[in-house]
């Protein structure tokens, strides 16, 4: 088969996600939607003392959106909020096509999405999880309230 963007790392995260599950003790939660693909995820984070101790997502959408969210959680679980935000900034820059070799390595498996920089129509899919995480940190009250509301359901 020819060169494909759909490499094993990507398809594996899509078909066998490690973090696609409920997270009952999440204290932050936010929904992210990409209307162009119909991708829809709910990101859940458990943050203690400024550190992401656990995370999960639910939802459905194209392989890129789902795998990207899974890779992101692989990367940020166990890190501080600041580190996660820094990595997110690097990821977004990678998608725009401006990162260094070292930065690419820092992203670990998420770096497998580097070719999205040549696929403008898929950028929104790739960044959906990351944007949603950024939004959680930008407006923690809202994300905390959503997590609270989800617990009551």
């Amino acid at each position: 088969m020819q060169n494909t963007f759909y490499n094993e790392i990507l398809t594996d995260h899509n078909l066998h996600p490690a973090h696609k599950h409920e997270l009952p003790d999440a204290n932050f939660q936010l929904e992210g939607v990409n209307p162009s693909c119909g991708d829809d995820i709910v990101l859940k984070l458990k943050v203690e003392d400024g550190k992401i101790v656990d995370g999960a997502y639910l939802g459905d959408g194209c392989a890129i959106s789902q795998a990207s969210a899974d890779m992101m959680l692989d990367l940020v679980i166990g890190r501080t909020k600041e580190e996660a935000q820094r990595l997110s900034e690097i990821f977004l820059r990678m998608i725009k096509g401006h990162i260094t070799e070292e930065e690419h390595e820092e992203l670990e498996e998420a770096g497998a999405l580097i070719d999205v920089s040549h696929m403008p129509s898929r950028v929104k899919c790739a960044v959906l999880g990351w944007h949603t995480m950024d939004e959680i940190f930008d407006d923690p009250e809202k994300a905390a309230a959503e997590a609270e509301a989800a617990k009551k359901e």
Binding site: Q2, N3, T4, F5, Y6, S36, C37, G38, G61, C62, A63, I64, M119, S121, R122, C125
Partner: peptide, 22 residues
């Protein structure tokens, strides 16, 4: 099990233009 946007992207890799979405 395969999302239409992924279908269209893979078909593009094979030189086939199809439409995906709603």
């Amino acid at each position: 099990g395969v999302h239409p946007h992924d279908i269209a992207a893979m078909m593009d890799e094979d030189g086939v233009c199809v439409r995906a979405g709603h």
